[in-house]
Amino acid sequence: MLKIENLHARVEGKDILKGLTLTVNAGEVHAIMGPNGAGKSTLGNVLSGRDGYEVTEGSVTFNGVDLLALEPEARAAAGVFLAFQYPVEIPGVNNTYFLRAALNAQRKQRGERELDSMQFLKLVREKLKIMQISDELLHRAVNEGFSGGEKKRNEIFQMAVLEPKLAILDETDSGLDIDALKQVAQGVNALRSAERGFLVITHYQRLLDYIEPDFVHVLADGRIVESGDKTLALKLEEQGYAWVTDKDPVLHGASA
């Protein structure tokens, strides 16, 4: 589904991703772990099309389409969803209105019929159950005055309504206490399916106790330096990132 090959990207003239290669198939959950500054958030931003990220080499295809050639809104319509590390507060834009506009914009781009307000409301009611979000959040402005946990749950709720093919979770665990973390993970798990791929970007192993990955990759200095199954995450937790970076001849050589 998602095929990243030899991806190089820079931000403000600084090379961040330096040859990242990764394939995510439908139904798989991939965790990307790595130390601060490794390029984890850059990966999420490049995939979702944020301005200011320049791809200098490599390719990203999504179901055979050149993802990097698409505008952010077209990527969303194609089925890519980014759950933000820091969801943006948008005063004056009602949460429900926003979500309906987003869903219908995607449907329109895909040539599907837009949902009327009754159909949309029905969909929202179904999804609310999954996320255990209170009605009240829906009537407020997007993320405005939401607690950290509410913001992250709202991200997952949006994901539930938009039903992407690929969900990228950018440090969704940051700033969450254990209860909020469990709620968010529960929401994500409810959305796991054979048709959907997940890219879970995280600094800590903690989140992976609740969202069990099929694959774990270590991102260091812009490349994937180690891949394995979920036991890799546990090993990292025990031994720290130095264990993999020391093993890598390039990184080790650079720091020596």
Partner: peptide
């Protein structure tokens, strides 16, 4: 804010 809306599919 603009990117947030666009990332959800809004042109």
């Amino acid at each position: 804010s603009l990117f947030y809306l666009r990332s959800r599919g809004i042109p």
